[in-house]
């Protein structure tokens, strides 16, 4: 892995994304609004842990929104800017360049948690209590990995099509619902839950919630940690295979630019 290329791409992506008003809205205004909305829902939800329900829920929705509108949307933006063809034809492997962009966006979108937390503390005077801080740190790191891995697969597939914006909008809410960012998975029909269990963020969200709420058997936490990591590894492997196929396919289907 060319670390200099990766760092350079991460830096470029952060600069590019943050300069876009839509991204700033998703990064800052989105979590504020979601936190307020979830707070109102929390009051009549019967849930007990405010941090788990409101702060994590709004933060996760925010991070996923940022990923959808940047990691996925950037493929299309680069296509229309004429830079997708340039990065594709450069000697640096395309998949590594895209990975750098996804990491940049994901790291930047972690700010949504902070915005959500600050909103909760400032507006509602909430005291933050994390039952298992060490588990939370592990869960947070694994959450980042799981989002990067699923974004990588999505970005890869979207390279194939020029209808990226349509798919990007289609993806935002279903994934938030399927992975249980806000609503418990138990509310979904059992046959839908099968899809949820195949998505690595579902397990990452569980880890976050368990570490915040506490009272979970360590063996259960580590079992779910293992599931998250295995699923993320499967996605990483899948995206590696897909990129190999797609690097040929985009040149056959001519989807690198709009000319």
């Amino acid at each position: 892995m060319n670390l200099r290329l990766l760092c350079s791409t991460v830096r470029l992506q952060m600069k590019q994304s943050f300069s876009r008003p839509m991204f700033r809205f998703t990064l800052i205004a989105g979590p504020v609004l979601n936190t307020i909305l979830l707070y109102e829902m929390f009051l009549s939800s019967g849930e007990e842990n405010f941090f788990s329900y409101v702060v994590l829920g709004a933060g996760l929705m925010g991070i996923w929104g940022c990923i959808c509108f940047s990691s996925a949307g950037d493929i299309n933006r680069e296509r229309y800017m004429g830079t997708l063809a340039l990065i594709f034809a450069a000697p640096a492997p395309f998949r590594k360049t895209i990975l750098g962009k996804i990491i940049g966006n994901t790291l930047l979108s972690l700010l949504t948690f902070l915005v959500s937390l600050l909103t909760a503390v400032i507006l509602f005077g909430v005291k933050v209590r994390i039952a298992e801080p060490s588990h939370f740190l592990v869960a947070f790191a694994v959450t980042i990995v799981s989002f990067i891995s699923i974004s990588s697969v999505i970005a890869c597939v979207l390279t194939l099509s020029r209808k990226t914006e349509l798919y990007m909008n289609l993806l935002e809410l279903p994934i938030a619902l399927l992975c249980g960012f806000v609503f418990p998975l138990e509310l979904l029909p059992p046959f839908i839950r099968v899809i949820s269990y195949a998505l690595s963020p579902t397990w990452a969200v569980r880890l976050l919630r368990r570490s915040v709420e506490g009272g979970t058997e360590p063996s259960l936490f580590f079992r779910e940690l293992l599931i998250t990591l295995v699923l993320s590894a499967v996605y990483a492997l899948l995206s590696l295979l897909l990129y190999r196929l797609i690097e040929k396919h985009v040149r056959i289907r001519a989807t690198l630019d709009v000319a």
Binding site: L5, S8, L12, K15, M81, A85, I87, A90, A92
Partner: peptide, 26 residues
């Protein structure tokens, strides 16, 4: 080089554009 106004990152400076492409060319 393709003609027209495409193919550069408009929200970066000229120097940053060139630096980034230099990285892409390893």
């Amino acid at each position: 080089i393709f003609g027209g106004e495409f193919g550069v990152y408009r929200r970066l400076s000229a120097r940053d554009n060139l630096r980034y492409f230099a990285h892409l060319y390893l």
